[in-house]
């Protein structure tokens, strides 16, 4: 175990790794990843896997899979895992600082600039059309998230497929009619999903 870690440190040093270099890479990504999460993810892969070989494709895929079951913004969780993998707690702190500081400063600066020009009708009009486009892009993104679940559960049998459609439409109707606290519905959705998947898997095991 110790040998493995020493080898890893040696390999990292050979590929030019240092805490200063780690901070520089995250600062570059944080300041240049215009275009949202997809662009940020692209730059992370480009810098860490292909340009510097500080992590492997397999390690990145493993980190990304883990982040799907963690709360909050997935890319921040990936940042934490990469920082921890490369340099422990100090790596986590440096990675978060490097990614978030420039992007947060630019976000606040653009928000402040927007506040000073928001009263102009042309700006308002542009904002409405941009939001319409965001809604369209978001429909596509949401479809990409739901499609694999629908397909997998369709293949898995009618019970899971009915659950998928029922939870998707039922939660929307319940939200519109009752306006319950959203967090409660997230928890209920998760628990309901766990119970149905566990039950159907158990039944299929018994059937075999």
């Amino acid at each position: 175990m110790k040998d493995h870690r020493e080898n890893k440190v040696w390999e990292l040093k050979q590929s030019g790794f240092s805490l200063g270099a780690l901070l520089r890479v995250w600062l570059i990504i944080g300041a240049t990843s215009f275009g949202g999460g997809a662009m940020t993810q692209y730059l992370i892969q480009d810098h860490f896997i292909y340009r510097r070989s500080w992590i492997t494709e397999e390690e990145y895929a493993h980190f990304w899979a883990m982040c799907q079951i963690a709360p909050g913004i997935n890319l921040l969780a990936v940042t934490i895992l990469i920082g921890n993998h490369l340099a422990g707690r100090m790596g986590v702190a440096i990675s978060l600082l490097g990614l978030v500081l420039p992007s947060a400063v630019i976000t606040i600066a653009i928000s402040a600039a927007y506040s000073s020009i928001s009263q102009y009708p042309r700006v308002q009009s542009a904002l409405r059309t941009v939001f319409a486009a965001i809604f369209g892009i978001s429909l596509a993104t949401n479809w990409r998230m739901v499609r694999p679940i629908l397909l997998a559960n369709y293949k898995h049998g009618w019970q899971r497929f009915a659950f998928t459609l029922g939870l998707f439409t039922g939660s929307a109707v319940f939200y519109m009619v009752c306006k319950p606290p959203v967090a409660i519905l997230y928890i209920l959705g998760g628990l309901f999903g766990a119970a149905v998947y566990w039950r159907t898997a158990k039944k299929s095991d018994e059937g075999e």
């Binding site: 799907q68 739901v146 939660s171 929307a172 959203v182 999903g193 998947y197």
Partner: peptide, 13 residues
């Protein structure tokens, strides 16, 4: 199941 359940609710909302 937890992941898919939460994703379905979030997308719907």
């Amino acid at each position: 199941g937890v992941l898919d359940g939460v994703v379905l609710v979030i997308v719907s909302f």
